[in-house]
Design a protein around this nucleic acid. Structure first.
Length: 122
DNA sequence: GTAAACCGGCGTCAGGTGGG
DNA sequence: CCCACCTGACGCCGGTTTAC
């Protein structure tokens, strides 16, 4: 399929380690507690190499969590979208059925009226 | 019985859109 | 702007139908 997306780039940019693991399809879900945007500014404003590594790992984790969350939401949105579309199609089909019935009865009615008129003329 | 065609559903990506 | 959400398009998969 197509290449990665925004958040991964973001992750790569943010995480010095670039340790982004691509989770397979049908990701496991779970992971609740959504934080819309803005990474939490790390508690460690300055530190040694170890602190930096920990920090980037943390950021990487955060990015992948966000990605997972985004996928989860999109998965759900797609399901809902399909449900909605199906309902819409069903509704249209019902409408077609109703209109066809109406059309039939109108045709019948017209035929009957024509008959009456014909008898009057004769 | 089985290969091929068809179908319906799913997850993901990409692009559009509206709201803050 | 940026973000979240919606939806079309794509590819994959498992189940069902059809032709042999």
């Amino acid at each position: 399929m197509k290449g990665p997306f925004l958040l991964e780039e973001l992750a790569v940019n943010m995480a010095v380690t670039g340790d982004e693991t691509e989770t397979g399809p049908a990701g496991t879900g779970g992971c609740s507690g959504y934080q819309p945007h803005k990474l939490p500014s790390s508690s460690l404003a300055q530190g040694g190499a170890m602190a930096n590594i920990q920090r980037s790992q943390h950021l990487g984790e955060d990015a992948s969590k966000r990605k997972e969350l985004r996928l989860m939401k999109n998965r759900e949105a797609a399901r809902q979208c399909r449900r909605k579309k199906k309902e819409y199609v069903k509704c249209l089909e019902n409408r077609v059925a109703v209109l066809e019935n109406q059309n039939r009865t109108l045709i019948e009615e017209l035929k009957a009226l024509k008959d009456i008129y014909q008898h009057k003329v004769d």
